[in-house]
Simulated assay, not measured.
Amino acid sequence: MGLEQETEMTREETDALLGRNETGVLALARDDDPYAIPISYGYDADARRFYMRLVSTPESEKSRFLSGTPDVRLVVYEEDAQTYRSAVVTGTLEPIARDELTPEHVEQYGETKRPLFEIWGQSRKDLDIQLYVLRPTTISGRRTELQPDGDD
């Protein structure tokens, strides 16, 4: 069994992690009630902004948590045989109205990974499909590497 060594990732390493992974877990809270969902996103490393397309119904729990401009936390992670990497992003999630979309927004949303199929309990016309931008307050990344202990 090896030892673990944890280090903070550089901005470039963190941006690379966020750029090559297009999915994560988005956490929101209202009062003391947490809500977390898996999401897909597009990431603009130059502007350090995230773009998301979130789908809900007007009466859903997700809609309640998305009302206004909530503070959020996005967690993205990956692992391979010897290394675990994660990034934690805090910031504000802001809806973008369709009439405010710019060509740059459309390009970013085009980069956002979508599921190969979508299953909803309601018909598509009853769904609220909203585009959001996550403007980070903080972005941090950590890497944990398993170091061989030499007893092999």
Rank of each mutant, 00 (worst) to 15 (best):
D31Q: 12
D15L: 04
L116I: 04
S56R: 00
D128S: 13
Y109H: 11
E107M: 01
D71G: 10
S63D: 07
T112A: 15
V25E: 02
R142F: 03
L3A: 01
R49Y: 00
S67W: 06
A97P: 02
A27H: 01
T10N: 05
S123V: 06
T57P: 00
T137K: 11
D33K: 13
E78K: 11
H105M: 05
G121C: 03
L93T: 05
V25N: 01
Y51M: 06
L26T: 03
G141D: 03
G42S: 09
G121E: 03
L17N: 09
L134K: 11
E100M: 12
S86P: 07
R98V: 14
Y51A: 03
E79L: 11
A81P: 13
L26W: 04
E13S: 03
S63C: 02
N21E: 07
V72H: 01
D32Q: 13
P136E: 03
T144G: 01
P58N: 00
E111A: 11
K125C: 03
A81G: 12
K125I: 08
G150I: 08
L134T: 09
Y109N: 06
W120K: 05
S67R: 14
T14C: 03
Q122Y: 13
E61L: 08
S86M: 04
P38I: 09
L127Q: 12
L146I: 15
S63R: 05
E104R: 14
L17C: 13
H105W: 07
A16C: 07
T14S: 09
V75M: 07
A47E: 12
I119L: 05
E118V: 11
A29S: 06
E8H: 00
T92W: 09
L74A: 02
E78F: 13
A27T: 14
L101G: 05
E4L: 15
I119T: 08
T83G: 02
E79Q: 09
E107K: 06
K113H: 03
I139T: 06
N21T: 05
T83H: 11
S67K: 10
D149S: 01
G24W: 01
F117H: 07
F50A: 15
T23S: 12
V72N: 07
Q130R: 15
P95H: 10
Q82C: 09
R124T: 12
I39W: 00
V76G: 13
P103H: 04
Y51Q: 04
V76D: 09
Y41W: 04
I39C: 05
Q147S: 02
T112F: 06
M9D: 00
T112G: 02
R142D: 12
Q108L: 12
P136M: 04
T7H: 10
A47S: 08
A81L: 13
S67A: 10
D80F: 02
E104H: 11
Q5M: 15
I39F: 01
I37T: 10
Y51E: 03
L74F: 12
